[in-house]
């Protein structure tokens, strides 16, 4: 604090509290809606406080879903989301660690080409190559499979560059010492490089887990079988019900459940999250 200005302090807190409330408001209202009885919501009286139907609504959503709209139990969809998020995060980290290791510690003829190939994937987000990617995945027979959900999203220029940057900052003496002691490259990688990258790996995992969990367009296109729906895309089927009003209390309970795991990860691992976010943009 440069100087003591009580009035300024008051303004700070007022603005910050207003910001906190503004960000929380939509989620609070969604929670309120999710605890109402379905019929009461449609009657048009707006309330700001939860009512007593919490257990019924959440129980129904988690274990039954919404059969009329072809939506499987949300518990099931959350497991699918979890599998997709973890596999995408682990997969991206694993293949990026390996390729960054090759690019930094080896000289080989195609090195530059591979580097640029990975760089160019930054310019090909799923949204841009959506129709042909669908055709390729369909051609490989991977629609409605976990592999089909995960593989097209798993290449990562960001993670590769992050690890490359980190490996370049590791003192070269370490690799030299390992070599003199007779350790091969893979031994050096597994026993020295990966343990040194622990914090980077953890920070990146947090970011990539959220990225994977929140995927929408690709799971929407790559799954036709309800058994493979993820929660973030499954909710669309509950909102877009033809010719009728969505059953809002069920929709909102699903929304709350669908955002809970990634939000919990951010709150619990705030430090790693901020590090991952800032690092992955460098």
């Amino acid at each position: 604090m440069v100087e003591n200005r009580p009035f300024l302090g008051l303004i700070r807190h007022t603005v910050l509290i207003a910001g906190v409330l503004l960000l929380a408001l939509p989620v609070w209202l969604a929670f309120v809606a999710s605890t109402q009885e379905g019929g009461r919501l449609l009657s048009g009286d707006v309330t700001l406080w939860p009512s007593g139907h919490f257990l019924q609504t959440y129980g129904a959503v988690l274990f039954e879903g919404m059969r009329s709209a072809g939506v499987p139990p949300v518990g099931r969809m959350m497991l699918n989301s979890l599998a997709m998020a973890v596999l995408i995060a682990v997969g991206k980290i694993a293949i990026s660690l390996l390729s960054a290791f090759a690019i930094v510690y080896f000289r080989f003829p195609l090195r530059k080409t591979i580097f640029w190939m990975i760089f160019l994937t930054l310019m090909l987000p799923v949204e841009v190559r959506i129709v042909p990617t669908f055709q390729v995945v369909a051609g490989l027979g991977l629609l409605d499979s976990t592999a089909g959900l995960v593989l097209p999203l798993i290449a990562s220029a960001t993670a590769t560059f992050l690890f490359r940057q980190f490996f370049l900052s590791v003192p070269p003496e370490l690799a030299e010492a390992a070599r003199i002691d007779g350790a091969g490259p893979m031994r050096f990688f597994a026993d020295i490089l990966v343990p040194l990258s622990r914090t980077n790996i953890a920070a990146l995992f947090v970011i990539l887990f959220i990225y994977g969990w929140n995927q929408y367009l690709w799971p929407f296109i790559a799954t036709t079988d309800e058994a493979h729906y993820t929660v973030v895309m499954g909710i669309q089927r509950m909102v877009a019900v033809p010719d009728s009003e969505p059953i809002w209390n069920l929709v909102m309970a699903t929304a709350i459940l669908g955002m809970l795991p990634p939000v919990a990860v951010v709150v619990a691992m705030q430090k790693l999250f901020v590090k991952g976010l800032v690092d992955s943009e460098k």
């Binding site: 939509p26 969990w213 929140n214 973030v232 909102v239 909102m252 990634p262 939000v263 951010v266």
Partner: peptide
């Protein structure tokens, strides 16, 4: 102030839709 980052865009849309 940072937790909304973790909310999927689709879910953010649904919240404001309501």
């Amino acid at each position: 102030l940072i937790w909304p980052y973790a909310v999927a865009p689709a879910l953010a849309g649904v919240l404001w839709f309501l």
